[in-house]
Computed example of a mutant assay.
Amino acid sequence: MKRIIFITGGQRSGKTSYAEQLALSLAEHPVYLATAHVWDEEFRQRIVRHQQNRGPRWVNVEEERVLSRHDFNGRVVVVDCLTLWCTNFFFDSNSEVEPALQALKAEFDRLITQDATFLFVSNEIGLGGVSENQLQRRFTDLLGWINQYVARSADEVYLMVSGIPVRIK
Protein backbone atom coordinates (compact mmCIF):
# COMPACT_ATOMS: atom_id res chain seq x y z
CA MET A 1 0.00 0.00 0.00
CA LYS A 2 2.92 2.38 0.52
CA ARG A 3 2.62 5.19 -1.97
CA ILE A 4 3.97 8.75 -2.09
CA ILE A 5 2.27 11.48 -4.10
CA PHE A 6 3.84 14.94 -4.25
CA ILE A 7 1.67 17.91 -5.23
CA THR A 8 3.33 21.28 -5.72
CA GLY A 9 2.54 24.64 -7.27
CA GLY A 10 2.04 28.31 -6.52
CA GLN A 11 -0.16 29.83 -3.86
CA ARG A 12 -3.87 29.33 -4.52
CA SER A 13 -3.11 27.01 -7.44
CA GLY A 14 -5.49 24.33 -6.13
CA LYS A 15 -2.90 22.04 -4.51
CA THR A 16 -4.77 21.30 -1.31
CA SER A 17 -8.14 20.90 -3.02
CA TYR A 18 -6.65 18.42 -5.45
CA ALA A 19 -4.92 16.50 -2.63
CA GLU A 20 -8.17 16.36 -0.65
CA GLN A 21 -10.21 15.14 -3.63
CA LEU A 22 -7.62 12.50 -4.42
CA ALA A 23 -7.48 11.35 -0.78
CA LEU A 24 -11.26 11.05 -0.61
CA SER A 25 -11.21 8.92 -3.75
CA LEU A 26 -8.74 6.57 -2.04
CA ALA A 27 -10.22 6.31 1.47
CA GLU A 28 -13.51 6.76 3.27
CA HIS A 29 -11.84 8.54 6.21
CA PRO A 30 -8.48 9.99 5.18
CA VAL A 31 -6.16 11.79 7.58
CA TYR A 32 -5.41 15.49 7.24
CA LEU A 33 -2.00 16.07 8.81
CA ALA A 34 -1.64 19.81 9.38
CA THR A 35 1.89 21.09 9.95
CA ALA A 36 1.15 24.76 10.60
CA HIS A 37 2.25 26.66 13.65
CA VAL A 38 -0.60 28.88 14.86
CA TRP A 39 0.91 32.37 14.75
CA ASP A 40 -2.14 34.46 15.64
CA GLU A 41 -5.91 34.46 16.10
CA GLU A 42 -6.67 35.13 12.41
CA PHE A 43 -4.64 32.07 11.46
CA ARG A 44 -6.38 29.98 14.15
CA GLN A 45 -9.76 30.97 12.69
CA ARG A 46 -8.55 30.04 9.20
CA ILE A 47 -7.64 26.57 10.51
CA VAL A 48 -11.07 26.15 12.11
CA ARG A 49 -12.77 27.13 8.81
CA HIS A 50 -10.68 24.62 6.89
CA GLN A 51 -11.52 21.85 9.36
CA GLN A 52 -15.23 22.66 9.14
CA ASN A 53 -15.09 22.73 5.33
CA ARG A 54 -13.48 19.27 5.23
CA GLY A 55 -16.25 17.83 7.33
CA PRO A 56 -16.66 14.65 9.39
CA ARG A 57 -15.07 12.22 6.89
CA TRP A 58 -11.62 13.53 7.83
CA VAL A 59 -9.41 12.63 10.76
CA ASN A 60 -7.53 15.83 11.68
CA VAL A 61 -4.04 15.61 13.18
CA GLU A 62 -2.05 18.70 14.13
CA GLU A 63 1.72 18.17 14.21
CA GLU A 64 4.30 20.90 13.65
CA ARG A 65 7.47 18.81 13.50
CA VAL A 66 7.64 15.11 14.41
CA LEU A 67 5.19 13.68 11.89
CA SER A 68 6.51 10.15 12.39
CA ARG A 69 5.33 10.00 16.01
CA HIS A 70 1.84 9.22 14.67
CA ASP A 71 0.80 5.80 13.41
CA PHE A 72 -0.54 6.13 9.87
CA ASN A 73 -0.14 2.50 8.80
CA GLY A 74 -2.96 1.50 6.47
CA ARG A 75 -4.16 5.10 6.10
CA VAL A 76 -4.32 7.74 3.39
CA VAL A 77 -2.68 10.93 4.69
CA VAL A 78 -2.64 14.44 3.24
CA VAL A 79 0.40 16.27 4.65
CA ASP A 80 -0.38 19.96 4.30
CA CYS A 81 2.03 21.43 3.92
CA LEU A 82 5.77 21.01 3.48
CA THR A 83 6.21 24.79 3.27
CA LEU A 84 4.86 25.37 6.77
CA TRP A 85 6.64 22.27 8.07
CA CYS A 86 9.94 23.64 6.72
CA THR A 87 9.22 27.00 8.34
CA ASN A 88 9.07 25.34 11.76
CA PHE A 89 12.47 23.68 11.31
CA PHE A 90 13.97 26.81 9.72
CA PHE A 91 13.15 28.95 12.74
CA ASP A 92 14.21 26.18 15.15
CA SER A 93 17.66 26.22 13.52
CA ASN A 94 18.04 30.02 13.69
CA SER A 95 17.44 30.31 9.94
CA GLU A 96 20.39 28.05 9.12
CA VAL A 97 19.59 25.96 6.07
CA GLU A 98 21.86 22.93 6.50
CA PRO A 99 20.75 21.80 9.99
CA ALA A 100 17.11 22.40 9.08
CA LEU A 101 17.47 20.42 5.85
CA GLN A 102 19.16 17.48 7.59
CA ALA A 103 16.46 17.39 10.30
CA LEU A 104 13.69 17.55 7.69
CA LYS A 105 15.19 14.76 5.59
CA ALA A 106 15.65 12.52 8.64
CA GLU A 107 12.08 13.07 9.79
CA PHE A 108 10.68 12.55 6.27
CA ASP A 109 12.64 9.28 6.01
CA ARG A 110 11.23 8.09 9.36
CA LEU A 111 7.68 8.98 8.31
CA ILE A 112 7.69 7.18 4.99
CA THR A 113 8.74 3.88 6.54
CA GLN A 114 5.06 3.49 7.41
CA ASP A 115 2.83 1.44 5.13
CA ALA A 116 0.55 4.31 4.11
CA THR A 117 -0.39 6.48 1.18
CA PHE A 118 1.05 9.96 1.69
CA LEU A 119 0.01 13.01 -0.33
CA PHE A 120 2.54 15.77 0.33
CA VAL A 121 1.49 19.33 -0.55
CA SER A 122 4.12 22.03 -1.06
CA ASN A 123 4.75 25.38 -2.72
CA GLU A 124 7.08 26.28 -5.56
CA ILE A 125 8.19 29.61 -4.12
CA GLY A 126 11.33 29.70 -6.25
CA LEU A 127 9.38 30.25 -9.47
CA GLY A 128 9.01 33.96 -8.74
CA GLY A 129 12.63 35.05 -9.07
CA VAL A 130 15.40 35.75 -6.59
CA SER A 131 14.47 37.77 -3.53
CA GLU A 132 16.60 40.70 -2.41
CA ASN A 133 15.97 39.53 1.17
CA GLN A 134 18.67 37.16 2.47
CA LEU A 135 16.33 35.36 4.88
CA GLN A 136 13.84 34.70 2.07
CA ARG A 137 16.62 33.41 -0.20
CA ARG A 138 17.72 30.97 2.49
CA PHE A 139 14.20 29.72 3.02
CA THR A 140 13.64 29.39 -0.73
CA ASP A 141 16.78 27.24 -0.91
CA LEU A 142 15.59 25.07 1.98
CA LEU A 143 12.14 24.50 0.53
CA GLY A 144 13.50 23.88 -2.95
CA TRP A 145 15.89 21.23 -1.66
CA ILE A 146 13.28 19.45 0.47
CA ASN A 147 10.84 19.55 -2.47
CA GLN A 148 13.49 17.86 -4.63
CA TYR A 149 14.13 15.28 -1.92
CA VAL A 150 10.44 14.41 -1.57
CA ALA A 151 9.88 14.39 -5.34
CA ARG A 152 12.72 11.88 -5.82
CA SER A 153 11.00 9.54 -3.34
CA ALA A 154 7.55 10.06 -4.82
CA ASP A 155 5.72 7.58 -7.00
CA GLU A 156 3.76 10.44 -8.57
CA VAL A 157 4.44 14.18 -8.84
CA TYR A 158 1.90 16.82 -9.89
CA LEU A 159 2.38 20.50 -10.60
CA MET A 160 -0.81 22.49 -10.09
CA VAL A 161 -1.37 25.28 -12.61
CA SER A 162 -4.50 27.39 -12.16
CA GLY A 163 -6.40 24.46 -10.64
CA ILE A 164 -5.22 21.96 -13.24
CA PRO A 165 -2.98 19.08 -12.14
CA VAL A 166 -0.12 18.47 -14.58
CA ARG A 167 1.51 15.10 -14.02
CA ILE A 168 5.30 15.39 -13.93
CA LYS A 169 6.21 11.89 -12.75
Score class of each variant (00 low, 15 high):
residue 96 E to D: 06
residue 153 S to V: 04
residue 108 F to S: 02
residue 4 I to K: 01
residue 103 A to M: 10
residue 71 D to G: 10
residue 50 H to E: 05
residue 67 L to K: 04
residue 45 Q to P: 05
residue 74 G to D: 05
residue 98 E to H: 10
residue 129 G to F: 04
residue 72 F to W: 06
residue 68 S to W: 15
residue 158 Y to Q: 05
residue 136 Q to C: 11
residue 109 D to V: 14
residue 154 A to S: 08
residue 146 I to R: 11
residue 59 V to Q: 14
residue 13 S to L: 07
residue 50 H to T: 10
residue 88 N to D: 00
residue 98 E to A: 09
residue 71 D to S: 08
residue 45 Q to D: 15
residue 47 I to E: 02
residue 169 K to Q: 12
residue 39 W to N: 11
residue 14 G to F: 00
residue 128 G to V: 07
residue 48 V to S: 03
residue 65 R to F: 08
residue 57 R to S: 15
residue 15 K to M: 08
residue 80 D to G: 15
residue 114 Q to K: 07
residue 133 N to A: 03
residue 112 I to A: 05
residue 131 S to F: 07
residue 169 K to I: 04
residue 98 E to R: 10
residue 126 G to V: 06
residue 91 F to M: 05
residue 57 R to Y: 11
residue 167 R to H: 15
residue 16 T to V: 07
residue 168 I to M: 15
residue 45 Q to W: 04
residue 163 G to I: 06
residue 113 T to Y: 03
residue 61 V to G: 00
residue 88 N to E: 02
residue 159 L to K: 12
residue 154 A to Y: 05
residue 91 F to S: 03
residue 37 H to W: 03
residue 3 R to Q: 09
residue 106 A to N: 10
residue 120 F to V: 00
residue 10 G to T: 13
residue 34 A to H: 02
residue 44 R to V: 01
residue 20 E to T: 09
residue 103 A to D: 04
residue 14 G to D: 07
residue 88 N to S: 05
residue 23 A to D: 02
residue 34 A to C: 05
residue 116 A to E: 06
residue 140 T to F: 09
residue 131 S to K: 01
residue 93 S to G: 12
residue 86 C to E: 05
residue 34 A to M: 10
residue 104 L to K: 08
residue 154 A to R: 14
residue 41 E to V: 12
residue 38 V to L: 02
residue 15 K to F: 09
residue 74 G to N: 08
residue 159 L to M: 15
residue 112 I to C: 08
residue 165 P to C: 07
residue 94 N to E: 11
residue 58 W to Y: 08
residue 144 G to C: 07
residue 5 I to W: 07
residue 100 A to T: 00
residue 85 W to E: 12
residue 138 R to T: 00
residue 21 Q to D: 13
residue 73 N to D: 13
residue 88 N to C: 14
residue 52 Q to Y: 09
residue 37 H to M: 13
residue 81 C to M: 05
residue 51 Q to T: 04
residue 157 V to M: 04
residue 31 V to H: 01
residue 118 F to H: 08
residue 142 L to N: 01
residue 162 S to D: 13
residue 94 N to M: 02
residue 169 K to R: 13
residue 63 E to I: 02
residue 114 Q to C: 07
residue 122 S to N: 10
residue 108 F to I: 15
residue 141 D to I: 13
residue 56 P to R: 02
residue 95 S to R: 11
